[in-house]
Amino acid sequence: MFDLYGFGHLLFEGTLVTIELSLAALVCGLVLGLAGAAMKLSGLWPLRLLAGIYTAVIRGVPELVVILFIYYGGVILLNKFAHSLGYVGYINVNAFTAGVTALSLTFGAYATEVFRGAIAAVPANQIEAARAIGMRPRTIFRRILLPQVWRFALPGLGNIFLIIIKETALVSVIGLDELMRKADLAVGYTKKPFTFFLFAACIYLSMTAVAMLFQRGLERRANRGVAGRPMA
């Protein structure tokens, strides 16, 4: 169907980088999202303020600008900070690190809201009941809160992950050799933009399709034993 002019394996390598990038952003973003939600629900106002600023900034600024800022500016800020702590060497921020950082920050900001909603959706009387029968806070978190939060949060998290897969393409702008940039290189060589961008589009489409199927499977698992439609 596609004549790739010998660039097939290059595009395959790019696809692998795109997958790595998405998964790394997923893991770091989940951690950031949980931390953000915990901060937003905490009793300390400085924490709430900090989390509020974080989500407001990320949700209001284009990802492309965040990526450009982290790649070009982040390295300068990071080294200034490290040197002020007395470090003499040089810390590099490569395109992959910058990309994962930017995408994780995005994922984290949106996940913060999803987790916050999911935690709030767990009925308070369940937690009271758990406490009444003498469960410790850690046990409550693990056995009452987490399974339900997971269930409520899954649809939202799945949507964010789909967004992140697509946003990995933006990291090509700072020269990370992911799928989009490889396609761009192939275009520079062969002058066949339609062929290569269409091919890239097909790969992205299959990736999001697989992610959607996976999400559906996870949701079905998380909803075992729950009557009717998922609530969140």
């Binding site: 390295v75 300068i76 040089y90 590099n92 700072i174």
Partner: peptide, 16 residues
């Protein structure tokens, strides 16, 4: 290493 032209001088100055 390959580096996008836009950022090639900022990258040098940043020590990349």
């Amino acid at each position: 290493v390959a580096q996008a032209w836009d950022g090639i001088i900022p990258g040098l100055k940043a020590g990349k």
